[in-house]
Design a protein around this nucleic acid. Structure first.
Length: 670
DNA sequence: CGGCCTCGAGTTCC
DNA sequence: CTCGAGGCCG
């Protein structure tokens, strides 16, 4: 009776593991899975004769091993030659053609293209269908026996799902940590006050070398199989047939692996994998191209360590190490001191990186980043470069621990740091850096949208004392600009006109442009709609301001304090005198339309319109747009290269419109 | 008070 | 884009 139940539970648990790791489609929640596992464990504990070596309960053997013994591989684990670009890939193909031509096989061979996972290569030996031994790659000839730890990896079958398994088969593949799981792991560690892990690859390596396999069991390790090594009692004709065999018998085989004929198709497949690199849940550092037919592989043989029948097409790395030359500081318009890294220029993910943000002093010291360190720099896709942390092995002892300066680097006034704040602040209202940043904010697209007035010009005008505050812009003349570098009659006139044109910007954008702390565009628009004019806002008390939807005491006090400052009052008067809009116009009021009550998020790149145009179209029809996806979102409009928001929308069950569907919806609603 | 949701602020490179 | 924090609802 309980034997039948035990078999049932084992079958069930294996099916769930398979759905989770092979099909990437979990069918039960963790609690249900754990309950079944606990029940099976209880049955097996009551009747130990029911235990089978490949039972899901037998993954963690318990106990601490005394170290790892070195084991020789049955067949050496080869390394791969690299192709760094298309030319090197083509050159490899030409060599193949020549070699095969000499042996009378001149036709274009079939290839298998696979993503090259950035993890750790493992060799898994199955004897009579049962996992006997797992060994790391090591030097290729011999590696470490990590069987006890590998048994805890749920993506790796303890037995081959086949009634007649071969006498012996060596399955090779890559052990890795999925990126999402890695992120969660670090989040948990952060919450627990533990140091965070540097990168998935090193964490996977460290996890496999745990002496206590119950620790390994808690790490989110996974596995992709990609090759066959030693064999007894079975033979394969090709790489693709071997992969199909593995996949049918419960081994995870990467879905991106493809078979194709001809090097041109291979080249395209490599680039397709590179394009999708950011959307994968694991790090890859290239694509592996293999000649499919094993007979051809045998004919081609190897040169030294590198087989001639395979090559690694390498992508530019998204993480690199470089030297941290110094830590500089920007002072933002709010007065926040923002440290950034001055790096020895290094190419990461195809672009040269020189700077990277460092957030705040606490963050720098938590990561233990010191000036002079060799640091790991990351840049995933279009994402901003980050300094992940130092390479501790490269420390010489001459590195300098970073300390925030006591005085503002821009104005020399003392810096203030509140206990509860992460950031240091310059509180000097006349700090030149804060002034300049404030003017930059004023001319920005979402504020006054003044074209032709950029960072460089603002700094120059500030130096010349032509513009010391935003309102001074309106007094600029063509004659003021002409002596400046890069200005001709026409360009000077255009700039003056662009400034003049900004006087018609809606009141909401003007209020935003003033740069009141905590008041962004959305809040500024809410406030202007509630008060209608700057005069009424200035008269209002804190309580009245806090009644505005989305405004609480913190924001209300910031607004009131700003309005009460005499210098700010002079500035507002100057703007009014210049003719800047300080009253609400009708077209700023929310529109009633078919989208009223609906909230949209636009992400990714749209082909036919900019994101701002999409926002405008939605708002014209009465819809609301926000920047983050939640359950309250009615639709996500997803263009090309949509990132994390797409995943979030899928998870939250928010309907997703591609550009075509969005245009249809707009068309049918207008 | 806890847990969402939303907004603000600052960011790099081409 | 991400992080942190303010606002609001239950």
């Amino acid at each position: 009776m309980s034997a039948a139940r035990a078999t049932e539970l084992r079958t069930q648990l294996r099916a769930w593991d398979r759905a989770y790791y092979l099909d990437d489609a979990p069918v039960v929640d963790d609690a249900t899975y754990d309950a079944a596992l606990r029940e099976l464990r209880a049955l097996e504990a009551a009747q130990p004769e029911l235990i089978e070596p490949d039972s899901p309960t037998q993954r963690v053997a318990g106990g601490v091993s005394g170290g790892f013994s070195e084991v020789r591989h049955l067949l050496p684990m080869l390394s791969l030659a690299n192709a760094r670009d298309d030319d090197e890939l083509m050159a490899w193909d030409i060599r193949l053609q020549k070699l095969l031509g000499e042996t009378g096989e001149a036709e274009e061979p079939a290839f298998v293209v696979e993503p090259k996972i950035d993890g750790l290569a493992l060799s898994l030996v199955y004897r009579d269908g049962l996992l006997e031994r797992a060994v790391t790659r090591g030097n290729g000839e011999a590696g470490e026996d990590v069987t006890a730890n590998v048994r805890t990896i749920r993506a790796i079958p303890l037995s081959i799902d086949d009634p007649n398994p071969p006498a012996l088969i060596e399955v090779r593949g890559e052990c890795y940590i999925p990126l999402e799981a890695f992120r969660r792991l670090n989040e948990e560690r952060l919450n627990a006050g533990l140091p965070v892990y540097m990168n998935p690859r090193n964490t996977a390596a460290g996890s496999l070398r745990q002496l206590d396999s119950s620790i390994t069991a808690e790490r989110p390790l996974s596995f992709w199989s990609y090759a066959i090594g030693a064999l007894e009692g079975i033979a394969f004709g090709s790489q693709s047939m071997a992969l199909a065999w593995l996949s049918e018998r419960g081994f995870p085989v990467n879905p991106r692996i493809q078979r194709m004929v001809g090097i041109e198709a291979v080249r395209e497949a490599c680039h397709a994998i590179e394009r999708d690199r950011e959307s994968l849940d694991y790090d890859i550092d290239g694509a592996v191209v293999k000649v499919d037919e094993l007979a051809l592989q045998a004919m081609l043989g190897a040169v030294g360590r590198d087989p001639r029948w395979a090559i690694a097409f390498k992508f530019p790395p998204t993480t690199r190490t470089t030297k941290l030359l110094g830590i500089e500081i920007n002072v933002g318009r709010t007065g926040a001191l923002n440290p950034f890294a001055e790096l020895e220029p290094v190419e990461v993910g195809g672009v040269v990186v020189r700077h990277a943000t460092l957030h705040n002093e606490e963050d720098i010291n938590r990561k233990d980043i010191r000036v002079g360190d060799t640091v790991i720099v990351q840049r995933a896709g279009d994402v901003i470069p980050q300094v992940i942390g130092p390479v501790l092995e490269d420390r010489t002892g001459a590195e300098q621990v970073f300390r925030m300066p006591d005085d503002c680097p821009a104005c020399g006034e003392p810096v203030v740091k509140n206990e509860e704040d992460a950031k240091h602040f310059c509180v000097n209202l006349r700090c030149p850096s804060r002034d300049i940043e404030g003017i930059k904010h004023f001319v920005a697209r979402s504020a006054m949208d003044i074209d032709g007035v950029g960072e460089k010009l603002i700094e120059r005008l500030y130096e010349l004392e032509l513009v010391r505050r935003s309102s001074d812009l309106y007094a600029l003349t063509v004659a003021d600009l002409l002596p400046l570098e890069g200005f001709q009659e026409t360009s000077a006139r255009n700039t003056v006109e662009a400034i003049a044109a900004s006087r018609a910007r809606p009141f909401g954008n003007v209020l935003f442009g003033l740069g009141i702390p905590h008041v962004g565009l959305v809040t500024a628009q809410a406030i202007t709609r509630a008060f209608g004019s700057m005069e009424r806002l200035v008269e209002a008390g804190v309580e009245e301001i806090a009644e505005v939807d989305g405004v609480g005491m913190v924001i209300a006090e910031a607004v009131a304090a700003w309005c009460a400052d005499p210098e700010r009052q002079v500035e507002v008067a100057a703007l009014a005198a210049a003719g800047v809009t300080l009253t609400l116009s009708e077209d700023e009021l929310p529109v009633e339309g078919p989208f009223t009550g609906m909230t949209f998020v636009v992400t990714g790149t749209l082909a036919g319109m900019s994101r701002d145009e999409a926002h405008a179209a939605i708002e014209r029809l009465g819809g609301k747009t926000t920047s983050s996806v939640s359950k309250a979102t009615s639709y996500l409009v997803a263009g090309e290269k949509a990132g994390s928001k797409l995943a979030k929308a899928e998870q939250a069950g928010v309907p997703i419109l591609d550009e075509a569907a969005f245009i249809v919806l707009l068309g049918s609603s207008s």
